[in-house]
Amino acid sequence: MKKIILGLMAAMTIGTTAMAQSQVADRSEMIQKRTESVAKKYGLSDEQKQKLLELNTKYADIMGPSMRMHGNRGNGGAMRQRPGSNFGARPENGDSAALGRFRLSEEQRARLDERRKQMNEQREAYNKELQAIMSDEQYKSYTADMEKLLQRRPRK
């Protein structure tokens, strides 16, 4: 019994370590790919590309998943629904108690608003530093592309 438990613990430790290393590699790979993509699309020089890589690395921890602007899965971020499932369905009889479970409390709403405010501030800081890296023409093209991207996203 002791050997089985020790074997399972060893396997879990190895698996956890491998996953952590994989996530670090995935994160740095994601930053590198984003940098390469932007550099190619907007014709950045090698010096600009290096500065952009540093900027993307700096803001990857702060902005997290939102840095993956092209990570949309094609479904607008909606959850996949199983046939016959009524997830998200409104009650037919107008039962307000059933509707309440999908509403946010004031505290949750305040935390969400604060997080949104922080994200906007961080995005503005990122864009300000990016503008210093890019030429005026490159930055104008970049902001136009980001506006198009934001207009395509469904708003809730």
Rank of each mutant, 00 (worst) to 15 (best):
M1T: 12
M1L: 11
G7Y: 01
M12P: 00
I14R: 02
T16C: 09
T17F: 08
S22H: 10
S22A: 13
V24A: 10
D26N: 08
R27A: 09
S28F: 13
S28H: 12
M30A: 12
Q32R: 13
Q32L: 15
T35A: 01
T35L: 01
E36K: 10
E36P: 02
S37E: 06
V38W: 02
Y42C: 03
G43T: 09
L44P: 03
D46T: 00
E47D: 14
L52F: 04
L52N: 06
L55A: 07
T57F: 04
Y59R: 01
A60R: 01
I62V: 13
M63Y: 05
G64W: 03
P65H: 15
M67F: 05
R68N: 13
R68G: 15
M69D: 08
M69L: 11
H70D: 14
G71N: 12
G76F: 01
G76Q: 02
G76H: 05
G77E: 00
F87S: 12
G88V: 08
G88P: 04
N93L: 10
D95T: 03
S96T: 13
A97H: 10
A97Y: 06
A97P: 00
A98T: 07
L99H: 05
G100I: 03
R101V: 14
R101C: 00
L104V: 10
L104P: 00
L104W: 11
S105R: 03
E106F: 08
E106V: 09
E107G: 08
A110S: 15
R115K: 12
R115D: 07
R115C: 00
K117I: 02
Q118Y: 11
Q118C: 00
N120R: 11
R123I: 06
E124I: 11
E124Y: 15
A125D: 08
N127E: 05
E129S: 06
E129N: 06
A132I: 02
A132C: 04
M134A: 08
S135Q: 05
S135P: 05
S135K: 05
S135Y: 04
Q138S: 08
Q138H: 06
Y139L: 01
Y139D: 02
T143C: 01
T143G: 01
A144E: 12
D145L: 08
M146S: 09
K148R: 12
K148I: 07
L150A: 15
L150N: 11
Q151M: 12
Q151N: 12
R153A: 13
P154H: 10
